[in-house]
Each structure stands twice: as C-alpha cells, then as structure tokens.
Design a protein around this nucleic acid. Structure first.
Lengths: 213, 213, 213, 213
DNA sequence: CATGAATGAGGTTTCATTCAT
DNA sequence: TATGAATGAAACCTCATTCAT
C-alpha cells in the first residue's frame, strides 16, 4: 500500500468494517459539501459514530479523504473491469461503443464524485495520491485493451493507443465537470454517441464505421 | 459582473489598482499552496500589504479567490483571443494546429494555475462561478471559429463543432492535470502533435491531412 | 492508609497481586516519560493488561501514581532500613560513611525515580501525599539514629541532629536532580566522599575525623 | 538564547512587554495549580488577554512555562546578584551569614515558585532547560565568591567550594519543598541560623566561628 | 489611506472512563 | 475475570475579521 493509517484496534476485521462504513458514509457528504468545508463533528455524525470512535480507525482527517477516494475509485474501477472481459467477444468498434457507454453512464451516476476527485486530489498525501493514480491507470487500461485489439485486427489505425485511451476517459469525466455547459445541448445518450463518433472517426480505418445516432 | 466586492475606498482608480496587485500577487501563492491552506496573513504578505489594507479593498477571503480566478482567466483568454484573428489568414488545418500549439503551450506555462482552476472552482460563490464559465466559453469559441470555417470550406466534416472545440480545450488542460502520467511518454511538442493528429484525423474530409511528425 | 482505592474484585489476594504488578511495571515508564505524558493505553500496555482489567483494580489514573510512589518508596526505605541495624555495630563515623555510601548509591541507581518523586508529588491527593511524607521521615530516621548515637558517645557535636539527618538525605537526592552539573566534576564515589567529608567536618568533635581520599 | 519563541508581531518592544505580562501573571496561577492542570483559557484569562492574543506572542503552551521560569528565576538571580558586591566589604563569615539570610528569605517569599521549579523542570524543552541551568549556576556563584574569599584569607578551609556553594543553595530550597516537615520545628529565622551554623562549622578553620543563637 | 493588535468561535485531536461481551 | 470498543468533553491551537491608532 505504501502507507498505513493509524488505528488503535488490533482486530483487523473490525478495522476493515469500520473503515468501509466511514468511506461509504463520508463519501456522501464529501461530494455534497467538500472535504475542507466539513468538520470532524459533521463527518462523525454522518458516519453514525462518535468523534472518538472515528479516531480509533483513522489517524488524521486527511485519512478519511483517502478512504473515500480509495473506496469510490475502487468501486468504479472494479465495476468497469468486471465487464471488461465481455468486450472481448464483440467486434472492436462495438466493444468500444459499449465500453464508453458503460463508463460514461457510470460518470453520470457518480458525477458529484468525479468532480470531487478532480477538486480534492491535491489534498492527498503523495503516497495516497500515488495509489489513486494506479486506479486511474487501470481504468485507462480497459479502453486500451479494446483499442489494441482493434489495431491488431486492422480495424483501427492508431499511432498512440495509450493516449487515445486516456482521452476517452477524460472526455467521459468532462460530462461531470462541464455539465453546466453540456447539459444545455445534450442528454446523456446523445453525448455518449457524439463522443463515440468523435473518437471512432479518428481511428477507424477506411471510414468503415456505421455512424450511429 | 453579477456581484460587487465590498470596499471602503471611494477612489475607483485606487481600488482597481490595488485589486490588480492583489490578484496578480496572490495568484502566485494560491497556485503553489492552494486557497484553503493559506491564511490572510500569508496572503497579505504575498500582496505586500498589511491585512488591514487588504480588507479595504475586499470584503471576504473568498473575494480574493474570485479576483485571482478572474485575473488569470482573463489574461489567458485575452492572450488567446488576441491572436485569434491571425488564424483567419491560414488554411483551417494549419490554423487549428497553430491555435492548439498556442493554447497547449500556454497550459504548459500556467499548469499550476490550470490545476488550481479545476480544484478551487467549488469554493466560488455561484455568480462568481458563472463569470468563470463565460470566460471558458470564450476560450472554446476561438477553436469553434476555426472549426466552423473549415466546415464551411468543406475541409472539415464535423457533426458537432462546439463539442469538438471543448474537447480540444480539455485535452489541452489534461496536459496540466495528468502530467504525472503524460510526462513519462511525451515532451510537450510531441503531445501537441499527437493530440492535433488525433483531432484532425477525426474531422478531416478524405484523410487529406498531412500527418506531421 | 488514609484512603482506599476502588476495586471491582472481592478477591483480596488477587487485588494485591495485580496492584503490585501495576506499580512495578508502571514505575518503569513513569520515570521515563512522566505521569501526565502517559495515557491509560500506554500504561495498561506497560502493565501487560488491558485497560479494562486495569480499571478493575484502580479507580482513577491518579491511583496508579499513588501505587507507584508507594511501591518504590517502600522498596527504597525497606532497603535502607534492612541494613540499618548493621550500622549499630560500627563506630558512628564509619557508620555514617557507610550509610551515606549505601543511600547515595541507591539514589544513583534510582535517579530517574528520585527526580520523578520531586516532580510528581504535586499530582497526589493530600492523603496520598501524607503517606509519602511518612516514608521520607523513616528514611531520615536511619541517619538520625547514627547521629544520635555519635552524639551520645561524644564523638559528634550536633545542635540539631534531625536537621542534619534531613540534610544528608537531601544532599544525596541532589546527586539525582543536579546530575547535569555534578557529573561534570565528580564520579559517584568522589561525590559520596566529598559530601561525607562536608557533613563530618561540621559535626565531628575536635576534628578527629580521618579525612578520606 | 539558543531558541526563539514564535510571534506574529514585528514590534519588539510590544513583544517584550506582552511576554513580561504573560510571565508575571501566569506565574501566579502556575504555582497555585500547576502547569499541566491549567488550560489555555484559564491561562489567557489570568493574563487578562484573549487566547488569540496570547498566541500572538507565544508559539506553544510550553513557551509560557519557559517564560515563567525565565522571568522568576531571572528576578531571583538578579535580586541576589545585586547585593552580591555588598558582601565584599564584610568579613567572609558575616558575608556568608548575610547572603544565606537574604537567599533563604527569598526562598520563603517565593516558596510556591521554588516548588514549582523543582516539579516542572522536566516539562521544558532541553534548550529552555539549559537556560534555566545557567541561571542556577549564577546563583551558586554568589556563594562561591564568598567561600573563595574566605579560603584565600585563611578563614575557611574548604576542599570543594563549588560543592559547598551548591549545598547552600539546595539547603535553602529545602525550606520550600520540605516545609511540611520543617515548619513543625522551626520558624524561618531559626532555620537560617541552624543551617548557617551547620555550614560554617564544617568550613571554619579553628572553630573560630561565633556560634549564634 | 494604512496598519497590525486583538478577538473568540471553531477547528482537529486526545484521553480517562464505562460497559457489553 | 478480562477485554477493548465506544464515548464526548475538553484540550491546544488557528484564523477571518474588526477597529483604534
């Protein structure tokens, strides 16, 4: 892990349980009011614990931020990775559309959290930040695999699949933190199709793609 | 503007002068340490004023954040817009490459500030936030104009130029807040070329683009 | 005793046993880190008990302080008193030298504890403090007996043997709490001889004392 | 000084003034209730300042302890040193009696503080402690000068004047922290005479001293 | 106009003690 | 009997804001 969070308990099971409670419940108020704006009393009450109990399982307020990050990012990544094998059975174009659809819907679902991630990353200690970066890498990898397969089969022509993979993730995240602008012109489904087209037009060999919409 | 910042001074000229001093100098430490992490004493000292003087020209700590946002965004937008007319003389493909090169270099230049923008937006009051959004819109518009011209001339085929314009801005910003990842594989110039290719491949009619690099 | 410590146990044997464990083990960390600086978790762990168990045999954190005081003072006094009768067989001068040697070496041995005594006395409840005072009195009495015998035999000329007895004890304690200063000029043996000479020169009739060293 | 206390003020005069206020007023409640037992609110209120103001002139609670130590010790030492030259005009025996009388009366005066000193020394940071040690050294030196002069003139016969000087100081301090015992047998004046006799009997050549009382 | 000393509410963190298991 | 999780009051310290000079 790179670093350990202080706890006064020896019972590992309990520590895990409580930390998951903390992460899960704190996440809800963190995305609403922001990390710095919430004090320990508010956080503890949202976690349905006393302040003292909270401090049995964490060492610092910042540890809670890390727990929340890790919890939600892990959920997200695991959710995406879980369906990843299913894409192998589909032709690359379709697989990419499906993967983008899945991820972009997830972003829509967790939009408060995505914004939260972009805004609070700097408050993390470097080694906690490193762990989050690893999770983001895994997220990009799901798209990378599809792109690579398409390239191998000759359907895609991409000079830099890693970059494209990250672009895809980022354009999904944009749905969350540019919503004030995008919501005026798109509903989610339109946005997904539009960005999928944008990406596919750039990478499909011979313009063979069947333009959706 | 949407809202006014409290001041104890009647001398408008002086108010403007002091506020520009504040914005310009506070910007430097805000991007380094973050808004919430800095206290008024530190900010005042960075502004080379006393705390009391600072409060003659602002009403609230948050006002400083707004001043900084407005100042840097304006600088950035004015910089981009200033050269925008020059692109009209170039063929659209070249114009887009040039505009991206200009903006992406600016992002590299102001990378701390770009991150700062993404991270501190939440701390702004809604009407201050609205003003920032307008500036971002104008930024997107610079690219929109080029895309639109290319579409009119038949060189580009784009179903949604506004979206593409925003994608271009965002992929530039990514250079700042994904630097930990991108810096491993790219130097700035490579990144600009790669993203320009990515965008142009998606929008150029007949694949006529002369692939750089 | 003057006051009783709360316990939840009826088994008196067990209570005594546990309390001795507590006193003996807590003493070791108390002298190192100080009473106020240690919390119950640290104390319990040093006592090789859980916090809960600790509270079966004490009522208050302060009770532990008292147990430690009492335990170490008793040890010290018993040690000194145990050899006290042996001095009766020696000529007073020699007896005094021997007694001082014994006590001063003990102080050197327990120097952390002696300092601890001087520093933490204030944290005791008055009746606990009274018990400690009694023990100190008994310590002074060991020297008093020798002085009194010397006076009776005409070898010593002392107007106030009780005062001298206390002076002797105090000058021994000084080895502990002025160590930063004394250690520069003396090793323990030199210090003992020097102070013994200082005392004996003051009380010996006719300067008959055989100056050592 | 070896270390500096944090302050937010640049005005050195004011800093000195406020710190003296703090030292002087905090001393009064420190000796009554003990350093660890008092919280910042109580201390601030005793200093007739708000907690915030207090923290303009100190960095840590411990700094207050140091200020108090330094203030009272300095007062004490300066008081003693101020009269020190006057002793040069007196014969050594008389000078020593007078100096002891002065110091022991001061101890009686500041007895709460002397106890406080012995009890709280451990709570000081090492470099603060070092400064206190220096002051104690200067205190011993006042007596050392007299002893040395007596030795030079042949009136005293002392193998180790530095040790005797420290013994004198310590036996004075004993009046404060053994008061529970000494008060039963002595009033201050008797105690001073008794200890002066004890010391002089040990060091006077030819028992020439005119025993008082 | 400019200053920076003063304020006290509110922040995070610790800890003696209890009590269900 | 032994445990250690849970509690919440209270500790130390910070800081945006005011206002007398």
């Amino acid at each position: 892990m790179g670093f350990a969070i202080r706890t006064y308990s020896q019972n590992e099971k309990l520590v895990s349980l409580r930390r998951e409670q903390i992460a899960c419940r704190a996440a809800k108020i963190f995305v609403k009011k922001g990390y710095e704006r919430l004090n320990l009393r508010q956080i503890a009450s949202a976690c349905r614990m006393s302040v003292g109990t909270l401090y049995h399982y964490i060492g610092t307020k910042e540890d809670i931020l890390y727990l929340v990050f890790d919890y939600v990012m892990s959920e997200e990544v695991e959710f995406i990775e879980a369906i990843s094998p299913a894409y192998d059975a589909l032709p690359p174009i379709e697989a990419l559309r499906k993967a983008m659809d899945t991820y972009y819907r997830k972003v829509d679902d967790l939009q408060d959290f995505v914004i939260f991630m972009y805004q609070e990353t700097k408050n993390l200690r470097p080694n906690a930040r490193e762990r989050i970066f690893q999770l983001e890498k895994r997220l990009g990898h799901v798209f990378y695999r599809i792109l690579d397969r398409g390239r191998a089969s000759g359907e895609f022509k991409i000079s830099d699949p890693l970059l494209v993979a990250h672009n895809i993730v980022l354009l999904g995240d944009m749905w969350a933190f540019r919503r004030w602008l995008l919501r005026k012109n798109y509903v989610l489904e339109e946005y997904i199709t539009a960005q999928a087209n944008f990406v596919l037009e750039g990478i499909c060999e011979g313009k063979s793609l069947d333009r959706e919409r």
